[in-house]
Design a protein around this nucleic acid. Structure first.
Lengths: 246, 246
DNA sequence: CCTTTTTGTGTCGTTAAGTCACTTAATGAT
DNA sequence: ATCATTAAGTGACTTAACGACACAAAAAGG
């Protein structure tokens, strides 16, 4: 029998098909006390109640117009602010990752300065920053540990050909700070000269005119990212790279 | 009231929440007659009935263990084979892309040799290869046109630092063939010497010993990809690159 | 004023891509 | 057979950008 589209849409029942659960899980990183940290929340409900996991949740069909909206909403709920960097990471979906059902989670990598949300986080007990080093000792809900490792690996790649990691720093930062962050991400030391040269040549940062004095030694210049600096990719990777795919 | 996890899981009703539609949409490319082509199918049902679109569909919770399984199953249904290259592209989700409901589609980029599925495709009327050039003139279902442009852009990026596009060629291919494919993807001519040198140096291909004779001129050596050659990324991009993100 | 510490620069070496002429190996015409 | 034509493949030099490392600059503290 022939049906026209109008009739079809009016009688369409999406619950007639067996569908998976869909969630959105942002992985929010920051840089604090010389460590890369990730934001985790303690689960209030089942499943995996009381365990720590990513600050994600379900799409609110009424309020969220896009998947990014869901990611930003969840992050705002937990941190009080929206991060300056948010990019889709990967979508994980299989029959076993969630005890309840076949489940799909759309994951995002997000970066923010520690101070940006420190005040808000201090007010709640079920949200905390966890250093990557501590993660191995902390069993997480679902497959969130694996997801965080994926996000971390993607961020490592970005450190080879971009200054995206700078979004994990405060608005004003020094080049030694940025270099140290990259070194931790890459797990290897970098040549000061090479690191500075390429950033200078690409004109990614602007001098704020200010300096930051350490306890001793020459004070470092404070820079700010120019608009679009995060989107820039160098033509050449920093070396020592182990080359994986995407 | 307190509930233990066992009880929670037994009484969990996933239809209680308002959930989006979830689909999987592979974008399968091939190289044929000096053109990049994409596989499209004519929709048999609503919505957008009769229009052409990506060879995707819904997850079969019983048969598919993972999202990749869904992508491969849909491709096998339409081409008779599974492609040698399949990688997740991006997940698109918003309130308006599907007339029926808030909808999420997990998209994949796939590559295959034209000959690999030519026989099977010839047997069915609702599946065809469409050259990228023709796409502008062919309005597609949903937001599939946008999705294909995304996939095409990602493939262009890969042509800068990998030989992934080789999966769109037959098992045995010549270096001039591969270079021409890259040139079309990048939209710019490449230096023969540079192109060959980096591939040779990384030892990505193996000589089959055979040659392919054109109508005139010196015959080209036929190569085969070594295992893992697709995962290799060069440390340096081919130049002229316009550098985007992602 | 001199030592220590950290930031920032000058300079040369090295690597891999860019350029382009030239050789090689085939076809086909005279 | 010889030679023009065509396309594949190589040789050799140039160029761009990172690697390495010494050295200069700017602060603190005794």
């Amino acid at each position: 029998m022939q049906t026209d589209e109008q009739t079809y849409l009016e009688t369409y029942d999406k619950t007639a098909y067996d569908a998976p659960i869909v969630s959105v899980d942002p992985v929010l990183f920051t840089w604090h006390e010389d460590q890369l940290k990730v934001l985790l929340v303690q689960r209030s409900g089942h499943p995996d109640q009381q365990m720590w996991g990513l600050p994600g949740g379900f799409i609110d069909l009424k309020r969220d117009a896009t998947l990014e909206d869901t990611a930003m909403r969840k992050l705002r709920e937990k941190t009080g602010v929206v991060p300056p960097y948010l990019e889709q990471l990967h979508t994980f979906g299989n029959a076993t990752r969630d005890k309840r059902s076949w489940s799909v989670t759309v994951c995002y990598t997000a970066l923010i300065a520690y101070q940006e949300c420190a005040a808000h986080i201090a007010t709640v007990a079920d949200v905390r920053w966890v250093a990557m080093e501590e993660l191995a000792a902390l069993p997480l809900a679902f497959d969130h540990n694996m997801i965080i490792r994926h996000a971390r690996e993607r961020l490592r790649q970005k450190a080879l050909y971009s200054i995206v990691p700078a979004y994990a720093l405060p608005e004003k930062f020094t080049l030694p700070e940025l270099q140290q962050l990259h070194e931790v991400l890459l797990g290897m030391p970098l040549q000061k000269k090479s690191f500075r040269r390429r950033i200078e040549q690409a004109e990614l940062l602007e001098d704020t005119g200010e300096k930051r004095a350490e306890s001793s030694g020459r004070p470092a210049t404070l820079y700010r990212m120019k608009t679009g600096a995060g989107a820039y990719t160098f033509l050449r990777n920093l070396s020592g790279a182990t080359d994986n795919e995407e």
